[in-house]
Design a protein around this nucleic acid. Structure first.
Lengths: 363, 363
DNA sequence: CTGAAAGCGCTAACAT
DNA sequence: ATGTTAGCGCTTTCAG
């Protein structure tokens, strides 16, 4: 009587079931279900009694039972290649979760590193939970996508598709990369280096996902050609997403170091992601040069840009929308609306900051 | 006969059940279950037949049905406050998933921003799926932790607990913060500024989670006192985890700007996280000064350190272990091993890089 | 407007 | 060494 507060619960520690609610309200489980789903005719008086019973018993629907009965889990499995530290994927995950929530779905996430085997196990786990759909951001092995798809489970591949089956969502890198290059050209730069990831062959298995690097590099090459400038020795390829743990230095740093030692060094660097650009800034600083006074730098992805010195001009990817759209396509397919195997391209956007400026006059 | 390959499946598109396997093997579901669980006696010959049937039908256990039947989902809900961009939480998530996987559990993740209401909804979702335990990294509202706990669901709070119930995992910030300060002192610094988050009152609701900032600040204050140096005007508090979107500038930048304008400016800055340190480096650069020649900087968390110029000396948090340990404590409690309400503290580690050097001789 | 009954796929106690 | 049976909590006909 004088107890402070008590959580509504069924005695015994187990949580209340429909039956408990029905018992408390003096009706059957069918009626309770009708009230909760707001479907079918229920007398106002019984409805009130049921609602009260729901409150006092602390009833919470059991998603397990519902999913089993309906053969529909309302679960979307999300395989995230969360290359640490990449805020891009965090944003993709957020977009995915928001979209899923508004549509009454739950997202199950698995952080897959670069590994095909871990990815396969994650797919198995998701299918074990009878996930209604799968989102790969991004896939490690096309076989895993095709496996799910062959089982009739809708899939979407985000940013770097590896298979032609299921939905594919890509980023239109080329226009914004061209914009970044033109931005440099407008500042009078003609000697612009490219520091990026290794290009993958246009045919063969890498054809699909290699488009990212090809578009970024293509923009560099095309603009350089347009202005009739030189390219020799100015394109440097290497491992783009990791940095050595002990030295904290990677391809961006080393490539820039090499570029700066050349007799005719570039006045600007176009890096194919922010991690590489960060390395470029470190090398520039160590060489006793200043960005953007001596050399301009643009990055890509806009992940680290706001934290670097100087603030980095970069291209922002539509991460959140990528995640949300992937989930939307998958749910639409699950629910029988919308065409399968859609292929969408989303736009990126150049964000101007402080790392670009007028090219220094010729030494 | 000449079909290339066919995915093992039961006709009709639905996935195979125990019954399908049993039918194919000419036994009952019980026997199949026994073979799959490797428990009880099964004749070698039947075992072989069953295994073959499993393969040809493409049987995959239904976790939904199993969980419902056992009243144990083997699911851990993980509420992640993924303040973008914070690789710390990504690492916590990885640690949690690895531990869960090795113990046969699945992690359900929800990215909760700073929001108590979103967190509450996520808890509801997890409980709807009958999660066996919950990990808060970190909680937004103590009521949500207490709610789960009151329902008999084991919880763990990571890094910044807000409630005294359930397991709590904290980081021992003080010793490594002192180490960072002593490192500066050994380089001859005496005028060391503190740039950090607002301190929270030691009593009241913030007492619990405010320890992080109090320990970091306390280390600064204690070492400064030990060496008998000045503190006036050298501690700057503000919003520590976000930066303005348009200007990409935050407290770290502005506080440092102010410190540098003072007549007797500090020779070193102790920032209470890497985001603040990044801002400090930006301000130092813009003021025409050089780090570490003119001014040294140390950060905390080691999230951005490897990407900054110069490479930042910072304190690394045991993120992965935090996630793994939280999951371990929760699972142990679920399985009835290990004490409830444990309170563990994990150590952090100073990582020396390039942003600290000998103090400049007095101007 | 409400109830009875079957069954989603699995497990576990109890036979045989 | 294998089978029978009941039931986890819910939804969904089908009756009334």
């Amino acid at each position: 009587m004088d107890r402070e507060e008590t959580w509504p619960r069924v005695s015994g520690g187990r949580s209340a079931t429909l039956k408990d609610v029905a018992g408390a309200a003096g009706v059957t489980t069918t009626t309770v279900a009708r009230v909760l789903k707001e479907s079918g005719y229920v007398a106002e008086s019984t409805k009130a009694r049921v609602l009260e019973a729901v409150a006092t018993t602390g009833y919470r629907p059991n998603s397990l039972a519902r999913s089993l009965r309906q053969s529909r889990s309302h679960v979307i499995g999300h395989l995230l290649k969360s290359t640490v530290p990449n805020p891009f994927y965090v944003e993709v995950a957020r977009g995915a979760e928001e979209e899923a929530r508004t549509r009454g779905y739950t997202i199950l996430t698995a952080n897959v590193q670069h590994d095909a085997e871990t990815e396969r196990r994650a797919v198995e786990t998701f299918l074990g939970w009878r996930a209604d759909g799968l989102v790969f951001s991004t896939p490690s092995d096309p076989a895993n996508v095709e496996y799910a798809q062959s089982l009739g489970v809708p899939t979407a591949q985000v940013e770097r598709p590896r298979s032609l089956v299921g939905h594919r969502l890509v980023v239109r890198n080329y226009p914004s990369a061209v914009a970044a290059m033109r931005h440099l050209v407008e500042f009078g730069h003609r000697r612009i280096a490219y520091v990026g990831a290794e290009l993958l062959p246009e045919d063969g298995p890498a054809a699909l996902f290699g488009y990212v690097e090809r578009e970024r590099f293509g923009a560099w090459r095309d603009v350089i050609r347009d202005i009739g400038a030189a390219t020799e020795g100015l394109a440097r390829f290497g491992e783009a997403y990791t940095i050595d743990q002990p030295t904290a230095q990677g391809h961006g740093y080393r490539a820039t170091q090499a570029l700066l030692q050349a007799a005719d060094r570039p006045t600007a660097i176009f890096a194919s992601n922010d991690i590489l650009a960060a390395g470029a800034l470190q090398a520039i600083h160590e060489a006793g040069l200043r960005c953007p006074d001596d050399i301009s730098v643009v990055g890509f992805d806009d992940t680290l840009a706001g934290f670097l010195t100087p603030l980095l001009t970069s291209v922002r990817l539509p991460a959140r929308r990528l995640g949300a759209t992937a989930v939307r396509l998958v749910i639409d397919e699950i629910e029988g609306k919308g065409a399968p195997d859609q292929h969408l391209a989303l736009d990126a956007e150049l964000v101007l900051r402080r790392s670009t400026a007028t090219a220094p006059t010729r030494r």
